[in-house]
Amino acid sequence: MEAHLPRLWRYGLSLSRNPSVAEDLVQSTCVRALERQAQFRQGTNLRAWLFTILSSIWKNNLRAEKVRTGGGFADPETELVFDGSASMETNNLFQRVLSEVSELPEAQRQAVMLVYVEEFTYREAAHILDVPIGTIMSRLSAARGKLAGLDPSATCARRTRDGEVEEN
């Protein structure tokens, strides 16, 4: 499990955009994984299982709590920064990518994290978030459209699948 902690923390950070909430998420995920270890089927993907637990905790507990207590989100630009040891220009590039992803609506950000950063398949990502695979597809497509600077209203009017409403 230790091997997965940095990735879980990074995923928690991208969801909450707040390092201490990210730590709470990882801790709660570990506690729940231990409680439910009987449910884990050996030979299946432990990483995917842990990401499923973290996603569920975020959806059902912490996110609601953050909103309820009016804590709001930290300014993404001040949270998703890193101390790069690479050249300034590589740092600038990566920093820009982090900022762009931070600014995506949560549902799109989550899909981008799972598929493009964690490299889960669409099917795995759909399972982790407990949504249909088509939802993953439309979230990624919306995210790409946004990052490419396409007009979101035009994209939505023309492209959004029937019956699917983005959460953000």
């Binding site: 902690l5 390092p19 998703l80 101390d83 990566f94 493009y116 490299e119 990052l147 490419a148």
Partner: peptide
């Protein structure tokens, strides 16, 4: 749509080192 691609993984991999492993 291709222009909406980014080096997502490389950028986010830079965050892994920042995970507070001792506390986690």
């Amino acid at each position: 749509l291709r222009q909406g691609d980014r080096p997502f993984r490389a950028a986010f991999d830079t965050l892994l080192d920042q995970a507070p492993m001792d506390r986690l």
